[in-house]
Amino acid sequence: MVFFLQQLVQGLAIGSIYGLIAIGYVLIYNTWGVLNFAQGDMVMVGAFTVLVTHSMMGLPMFLAIPLAILMCVVIGFIIELTAFRPLLNAENQRRLIATIGVGIFLRNLVQIIFGADAFPFPSIFGDKTMDVAGLKIVPQDIWNTLVGILLVVLLMLFLKKTRIGKAMRATAQDREAARLMGVNVRRCMSGTFILASAIGGFAGMLLAPKYFVIASLGTTFGNKGFAAALFGGISSNAGSMVGGVVLGILETLAAVYGKSTWQTAIAFIILFLVLVVKPTGLMGKKDVRKV
């Protein structure tokens, strides 16, 4: 039982990061109508920005992280300006490929600048194991879970309660109607994209201490986050967190009780089953097609 709980804690920790990555996909998909395959690489960029500000520039954590997030915001804005905005009215297929192109660009640029080696990164919240009621718990895991869930709750409050958040939701719902209501659609779309980039980048910062900082970080975790987004329902912000946590737990359990090589495959097998049984995901709304 203790062993099982131990795995549950681990799954929860990784799952909440999956959820954070997933929410980036969801935000961009709902506003821009395109799956951003570069979101995973944004996660990787986030890990590298904090590597630069903390390990290389030597700033303390409480300064390094905000600065790194600021860098993610700028990078996100550049991506939006160059690869998303010009293609706003293009066919879906072309926009999808453009995001893939952005991903290839980012991944290889980072690899040139920093090399192909993995960088170790010090733990933000401490990595000494604590003994809590027989469970061996790493503070990093607990903090990742808490920060991840807190961030999602804050984001949802922001979208529900604030003026800007409401404008963003209106833009996602119906661009034309939002414009008629006096919403600055252009700015809202940029804002959502930047927000998603910053959240993705932050997820990367949480990953950095545990999984090393390496250019291929984005591919692995991007796919996981993406599976979580679909699992929870691509139209639901809360769903992506639920999807992420469920995926994280299932994955950890599958690796422990099955074979470790299953860990990667399990995400996709689950994803596949979800698509076949309930394509809109756990918490997604049913989309009605109009002719």
Binding site: T82, A83, P86, L87, A90, R94, I97, A98, I100, G101, V102, G103, I104, F105, L106, R107, N108, L109, Q111, I112
Partner: peptide, 19 residues
Amino acid sequence: EFRLVLYGAAVVAIIIFAP
């Protein structure tokens, strides 16, 4: 090493400029 960076950029450019 720059080739893959350029490759990514070229893909985006072709999609934008040659519909």
